[in-house]
Design a protein around this nucleic acid. Sequence first.
RNA 1: GGCGACGUGGCCGAGUGGUUAGGCACGGGUCUGCAAAACCUGUUACCCCGGUUCAAUUCCGGGCGUCGCCUCCA
Length: 474
Amino acid sequence: MSSQIRVTSTLSRQTEDFVPVSGNEVKMYVCGPTVQSPPHLGHGRAAVAFDMVRRYLSYRGYDVTFVRNITDVEDKIIAAAAETGETTEELSIRMAKAFSQAYDGLAVLDPDVEPKATEHIGEMLAMIERLIDRGLAYATDNGDVYFSVRSLESYGRLSGQDVDEMRAGTREIVGDLKHDAVDFALWKAAKPGEPAWDSPWGQGRPGWHIECSAMAERYLGETFDIHGGGTDLIFPHHENEIAQSEGANGTTFAKYWLHNGMVNLGGEKMSKSTGHLIELSEAIDLYGGAAVRLFYLRAHYRSPLEFSEALIDEARTALRRISGVLSRVDFSDHDAEPEVIDSFIEKMDDDFNTPDALGVVFETVREANRHLDAGEPAEPLAAAVAEMIDVLGIEVEDAEDGVSDLAQGVSAIVAELGVGEGETTVETLDRLLERRSVARAERDFATGDRIRDELGALGITIEDGPDGSQWHRR
RNA sequence: GGCGACGUGGCCGAGUGGUUAGGCACGGGUCUGCAAAACCUGUUACCCCGGUUCAAUUCCGGGCGUCGCCUCCA
């Protein structure tokens, strides 16, 4: 491929040529969730955004190593566990499972490594000690360790924050022990009843930011290619990660910083702390994972994205156009139309412009349908559509998926008409279609329409074409 | 107050210094027993005010508005 992948990096505030640190290898670290409550649509977007990036880079021939962490020790988890009566470990495992299931529903590929904070305390302690040795961190009498923000010249580079302009943090209750209000915790002394680990400063637990620095280094090295996460993590989380890693190592941390936009509800960001959200599993159950994924990809990953039922329904309707054309033609032995793919790559190379790339997909869908309507071959076009949506991770459902759920309703219609059950629901449906064809041939449209209407009530649409009728789920 | 993003047709959403994005919705048509699907076709948009230019939705300046972050967040 001749064109060059370009990415917009938060660090440079520019769209720059993507050149990996080392040859063909791309190392990516994406901030995963704090597993404290079930995922909402915002988490899904972040996961899909970077899954798309990962899939695309692999498609373009890079050897991608993808790490996404799980934060399983944090104030909110401790508080939530106290409420449910679980241990923090039980709660975090349960929630991690909920995330994992929802990600599966969105066809998000598993990371190559999914490290947990609690399993990397040793790496964190080592990094904190290095920071103390370098004079960038200090321990307090009570056993906290803080990063000394003003000791690091470059602090604030990612977020554009000026240390003197920052409003002093109010979150740290023990803030008066800090040398400076802007300093942040690397290690927190244990309070009674909280999970704690041994450290040179006594029993305690890690601060939030140190885990990502430590785990990224462990699995990707001191310097790697892409660091991703939501825009809400730019400050302080990612700013602090840079401070820790570059402070401890004196080397560049991540080369490109990519941030996905927020999902809004009623014009306001979804947020788990305020409960202003739609749960991801609920949306997947209601609309289907592929429709939710398409809903995300219809906007550029960096833009804010408003959620509404109408918008996600639109995505679902649009998805049917894709599945429709793919079911019209058997393209399994055909290569994709090269011109289409070139055009797709051109759009995707431009900072993963999925809305533009989807334009190519839908143009190709129309082109393929046009050919098929004219009785001309369309296999390379259909193959191109299939290839593109595969890169985007959009999995169209098989017409037969989930049909067995309708067995009872279908049986009722069969009994009514005395058609006879098939071995499977699919077979029974086919018999009903045959019965309908016979009726229509005899110009008994009342029976034919009745079958269509009753199946319609079950969520099955019948379409009559020149080569017979087909059914599919709505 | 500081940092950043953004304002495009009925809605969503790309993009561009002069040439049809795309999707959804709606109207007309082809096809069809009817319907659906598919295809054709129509609605011709760029927040406001200045400036640069032969030409600006696109560049520059100002204004208005929206959103995110400023130590919980994807």
